[in-house]
Design a protein around this nucleic acid. Structure first.
Lengths: 346, 346
DNA sequence: TATCAAAACCCAATCGATTGCAATTTTTGT
DNA sequence: ACAAAAATTGCAATCGATTGGGTTTTGATA
């Protein structure tokens, strides 16, 4: 590390290069009106002096921040806690997609019920746009974003006709694939676990119902276990169901975290998996392949999803008109095969 | 959402209030030199017009950004993948601690081997300081941070005498607690799983050794399973160990993710847990309580850790002299009791 | 060599807030 | 009631970069 007294600024580079700061600015921004050799001379000086541009100054002048915010509105009351690996993977995917385009990522994990204070991120000019992960109980609020609607992209499941730009995996196709898979294995009483209040989950459930329909069966309506508090609750309530004599030959959990919790409840009750009860999750988190037995699950292709969201957001910010988009999901059947399913537009 | 034409600026507020912008600025910053009623009048106007300050402008002038960066240098080659819930919990803890003090959090997940390009976050003025999570293979690099060393706080395990400010849970005490617990259960052949190249892990291992010493025993040197590739590898190698006839009556994994992987390998081999093999993890991630049997583990109190790191960082930024700090860990013995262990300074 | 367009560069205003210092008003002391 | 001290507020420079428009150079043409 060289001594490096202080960070040089553009005026200083200008002095060194014997040109005006405007020329330095244009040179560093590769403007075509600067002579090539001048550019190179200036760049070399910038290089040597270790010049780095002050982003606050640029942002102030250009009225933009080259940063996007990511908001993860975890419902504290919901069990979909922060420990669900799904979220970090999503942050990772978005972060990498953003930095690939030279954007920084500002994370915001709202606490409590705050209004969508995330809007501040935009209004203060800290972020140019916002990515919201999951509609978790605020889909109505999202529909009232008002003037910032064209700076926001949401990850989630499509409801009727949301007014905001939505990106999500094809939850219905995913649910259908799971249902078809289980039905083809001869399973008939599939217990669905999840919070139907969440659009993503509701769609997965609908996919399951459709799978039943396709083979002229109907899903037993008593086999839905609505949850609000995540893993621990899933574990306990599945155990209670079994104690109460509820019979099912498969479980379709709306997340791997729930599936793993349910899995252990089932095993604890002396039932075998997948013999007595087949088990399918959703998300394909790292651990789903490491547990015993390995979990069949649905991969949402988060990496791609993050990429698309950033893409769409930047295009929106550029004034382009964009439409919501679905990403493909794939059923990951452990130990056997992988089937790819639907892709479509919403 | 009101029509809200455009965002008002300070000069506009000044005009409305009939004062100079300097007065507005002071009023909004609660300067004591502004008369109270003037302050209130200005604030009311700001409120009504929905004024929000442009941070770029403030940052430019004040030469600060009110934001800190968090860097999570995952070693791609290491299995400690991004899916480890530990990291998100850490991001959450830091994010909440930061926002409590009005700071934003910029996440940076470096890809590949990049130099510590995160320095750019500082040099460009985007972030005032940096929090680095885990030394993952770059502890030497961290020791050469140079001029930015007083803007960085690292989470990890203490080596000999690192030059940077370090915050971490008391890994040695954690390891000791685990060892003491297992030994008190009569276990003697404890298999340690983890990558000793990571200071945190090394310290946990040392704690285990110390526990053995305390009861005048020594840890069988063949019972160390060094890993580089995380869960899947842990699963496979534990299985292989068993096949190869390696005998052990307990496993101490350096993370819950590894423990869960090992757990299933053990169970798959027909061994009972904790009857044949006791199993202890580290981190107390959400799932550790939901698996079967529930995992005894060590809680690092990440929430507190995040809080302390932000605290220390801000104090460093304020020019204060701070020293590294350990946070307490607690052994979480599932189904039984919870024992709190050590706290100290490094 | 004079003329003119194109190329390259410089000037100066601007983005929105902060802050030392000067100017003004209010309060206090006598 | 008047000067001095204290409390408020205004002026203007400043942070570091961008950019429209004007000026100087270059070089080609006649």
């Amino acid at each position: 590390m060289l001594p490096k007294q202080k960070k040089p600024t553009m005026p200083e580079l200008a002095k060194l290069a014997g040109v005006d700061v405007s020329t330095v600015s244009r040179a560093l921004n590769d403007s075509p009106v600067v002579k090539t050799e001048t550019k190179e001379r200036i760049r070399k000086i910038a290089e040597e002096t270790g010049y780095v541009m002050n982003v606050s100054a640029r942002n102030l002048r250009k009225q933009s921040s080259e940063a996007i915010g990511i908001v993860i509105p975890l419902r504290p009351e919901s069990g979909q806690g922060i420990s669900d690996p799904f979220f970090l993977e999503m942050v990772g995917a978005v972060s990498s997609a953003a930095s690939k385009r030279g954007y920084d990522l500002i994370v915001h994990l709202p606490e409590g019920e705050q209004t969508i204070a995330e809007k501040r991120l935009l209004q203060t000019g800290r972020a140019d746009g916002l990515i919201v992960i999951g509609q978790a109980g605020l889909s109505e609020r999202l529909n009232r974003l008002g003037d910032i609607i064209n700076k926001v992209v949401v990850w989630g499941g499509s409801e009727k006709n949301e007014s905001y730009t939505l990106v999500g995996s094809d939850n219905k196709a995913g649910g259908y694939a799971v249902g078809a898979h289980l039905l083809s294995l001869g399973k008939r009483r599939i217990l669905f676990i999840g919070s139907l209040a969440l659009p993503e989950v509701k769609l997965r459930y609908n996919g399951l119902l459709e799978a039943y329909n396709t083979v002229n069966l109907t899903h037993p309506s008593d086999l839905v276990l609505e949850l609000d508090f995540g893993g621990q609750e899933a574990h306990d309530r599945v155990a209670r169901l079994i104690e109460d004599g509820c019979k099912f030959d498969a479980i379709f959990a709306s997340s791997d975290v729930l599936a793993i919790a349910a899995l252990h409840a089932v095993q604890a009750k002396g039932l075998s998996v997948p013999g007595d009860v087949a088990m399918v999750g959703y998300d394909n988190i790292g651990q789903s392949g490491m547990i015993m037995p390995p979990l069949t699950t649905v991969d949402q292709n988060i990496k791609l999803g993050g990429e698309i969201m950033v893409n769409l957001l930047l295009r929106k910010l550029a004034g382009e008109e964009v439409s919501s988009q679905l990403t493909p999901t794939s059923l990951v059947v452990r130990e056997t095969t992988v089937a790819r399913v639907g892709r479509a537009r919403i």
